[in-house]
Design a protein around this nucleic acid. Structure first.
Lengths: 148, 148
DNA sequence: GCTCAGATGCAACCGAGTTGCAAGAGCGGC
DNA sequence: GCCGCTCTTGCAACTCGGTTGCATCTGAGC
């Protein structure tokens, strides 16, 4: 489990500034969610975030709206995983696109790999490519070790 | 729209035989769905299949069960697409794995490309790979031409 | 401090997928 | 050809992730 503790004052201020830069209001809900995504080593599902927020939990709907706003404003990317749930990641200046995800079929976690983006194949005539993503699935180190 | 008309007698018999080979009963529902998947040029969603069955439509639940049975018996593969709906494809002797899909972001259709399977990157220590799939998204030729 | 558009929370809704159960129908045995 | 067992189907009701409508609250510009 990653460290989801509150960041220090200056970090919060920086996040708030980043939010205001998009023209939106820097509300606690947005700061909190953005902070979680910043700290997360892998794409988080709605449920992950709800769990991580714990006591400081937001309304279910508010969380959906905050996440949608993040995607709309370009701060995050969302993607349906193999289990049909949305997973959110920081956009990281658009650099997240084209990078590689590994999903553990045992524990369900998703990892971002450092591997280079896959080279897209030649498309049939008339087709235009917007995005390419390589999805890997298997067992993560932890599950292999624990033999869960 | 692909041709979803009924196959001839011998084709039906062959499909029934293939179903019985798994130890299950060759029911009209299974034959019909298997036939649709055989004729389909790209992964079909539950909705696609329901629509294609038209008047000869099955119960929603039965269709889910037939599809799950197909996957369980190894005749088909299922996969959640970008829009969070399941898509089903014939397993084609396992050859479908590792091949490349293109999803049109305008019309939502999914195409199977002839491109070779992507070369999987090196995984972190302890990870084991079971499947790798390259997902492409953009606009298909038809949508580009029609400028829908 | 005051104001107001934008953000939040609540309740109700929607659609995809699942479960339980009774009725129906393949298919093997006679 | 008929019978019966067991698998399959259809119906109804449910669960769960996600969305919509609306009243209330609040960040931030004045």
């Amino acid at each position: 489990m990653p460290d989801f503790s509150l960041p220090d004052e200056t970090a919060v201020a920086a996040l708030a500034e980043r939010i205001r830069a998009t023209g939106a209001r820097a509300t606690p809900a947005r700061i909190r969610v953005l902070e979680l995504l910043t700290a997360a080593p892998a794409p988080l599902s709605h449920q992950d975030i709800e769990g991580a927020l714990g006591a400081a939990s937001l309304d279910r709907v508010t969380l959906y709206r905050v996440l949608d706003w993040l995607v709309e404003s370009g701060l995050a990317v969302k993607r349906a995983d193999e289990r049909r749930v949305w997973r959110f990641t920081l956009a990281a200046g658009g650099a997240h696109h084209g990078h590689v995800h590994f999903r553990c079929e045992t524990c369900g976690r998703v990892f971002c790999l450092d591997a280079p983006a896959p080279r897209p194949p030649r498309l049939p005539g008339g087709f235009t490519l917007a995005r390419a993503e390589l999805d890997l699935a298997g067992r993560c180190a932890e599950c292999n070790a624990g033999n869960v």
